[in-house]
Computed example of a mutant assay.
Amino acid sequence: MRKALITGITGQDGSYLAELLLEKGYEVHGIVRRSSSINRARIDHLQAFEHGENKRLWLHYGDLADSVSLVKLLYQLQPDEIYNLAAQSHVRVSFDIPEYTADITGVGAARILEAVIESGIGKKVRYYQASSSEMFGKVQAVPQTETTPFYPRSPYACAKLMAHWLTVNYRESYNLFACSGILFNHESPRRGESFVTRKITIAAARIKAGLQKDLFLGNIDSKRDWGYAKEYVEGMWRMLQQDEPDDYVLATNETHTIREFLDVAFGRVGLDWHDHVKFDDRLLRPAEVDLLIGDYAKAQAKLGWEPATRMKGLAELMVDADCAALRPQ
């Protein structure tokens, strides 16, 4: 039985990845932060794997800010695969807490990569780093590929770029099997409620139900490449099953404005978003990323991966899920 460790297991991607690995027969370990409130709603449905004879899911307290806990955990577990998904991942918030974002999202990757070396598992383990399309920022080419120059436009993107290049550096310096997945925006009903797509789908559902009147947004003209998170974690796993480590873009090769996402989401419940969406300049970023569109040709050719869900289908399934969540159980 292969053993995988996931940082950020309670997040959107971590929960879908845990599901996938458990389906494939893995023993799955996740790092969770200690807090006064429990934040495990995305993995509550996996409790059947936490108990009894079928126990294959283990949660461990730890933090990417604590290198000692990482070394101890890796030495104890001896995992076959590590998926580093943990981060302070909100781009707008990263302007408010740049030091924390750099420490967790950037230096955190250094800590776990160094823990791989210090725990002595470097020769056996396969490591995945969650890189981001935000690293392209002020894009230097359209569409963006694995070789497009980076131009980060936020503290979050700068921290992700640090983690990305550290992964390359440790791969070349220590001969680690280390891959980076440069994932473009990927959403789902499990997306955090502060992210724009989920803010939109929740608002559409609540306004339709008479529970909310308005939705406040910032820049709705920016263009993004949106895919379905559940499909993207399959690409992560495939990267670590290859003969040689490499970096891959996962995307849909389509770009849409937030206005278009609003059209689909509100249209799904028979509403016109123009009647409800208000502008709030506090939600603008100090430096904007205007256009992201990724070319996934390399992932398609080498991994056999391609997206099945595009923006329209994604927005509709998210709205449907948020509407269902409001109905009496």
Rank of each mutant, 00 (worst) to 15 (best):
K199H: 12
L211W: 03
S188F: 02
V196F: 12
A209V: 11
R190C: 00
G181K: 05
E193P: 02
G181H: 09
K208G: 00
L217S: 08
I200F: 12
L215E: 15
F184P: 05
A204L: 04
I182Q: 10
K213E: 15
E187C: 01
R190S: 04
V196W: 15
A209K: 10
E193S: 07
F195Q: 12
A203E: 08
A205S: 14
G210Q: 08
S188T: 12
E193D: 15
I182T: 08
T201A: 06
F216T: 13
L211V: 08
F195Y: 10
F195M: 14
V196L: 00
L211N: 05
T201Q: 02
I220A: 06
H186L: 00
P189C: 01
G192C: 00
I220W: 12
G181N: 05
K199E: 15
R206Y: 10
P189A: 08
A205W: 07
I200K: 13
R191A: 06
G210N: 14
L211Y: 01
I182N: 01
L215M: 14
R191Q: 07
F184L: 08
P189W: 02
L183M: 05
G181Q: 05
N185D: 14
A204V: 10
I182L: 08
A203C: 04
R206P: 01
L215Q: 15
I220M: 13
L217Q: 12
K213C: 01
N219H: 04
R191V: 02
L211A: 10
G210T: 13
P189R: 04
H186K: 12
I182V: 10
I207H: 12
D214A: 07
L183T: 06
D214F: 06
I182D: 07
H186S: 13
Q212I: 14
T197Q: 05
G181E: 03
I182P: 03
G181R: 05
Q212C: 09
F184D: 15
R190E: 04
N219G: 01
I182H: 08
I182S: 07
L215G: 12
L217V: 10
R190T: 05
A205V: 05
S194Y: 08
P189D: 03
L217T: 13
I182Y: 09
E187S: 13
L217C: 04
I202F: 00
R206A: 10
A204T: 11
R198E: 15
A203I: 02
R198C: 03
N185P: 06
I202A: 07
R206M: 10
H186V: 08
G210M: 12
I207C: 02
V196S: 08
F195R: 09
G181P: 01
P189F: 02
F195T: 13
S194L: 04
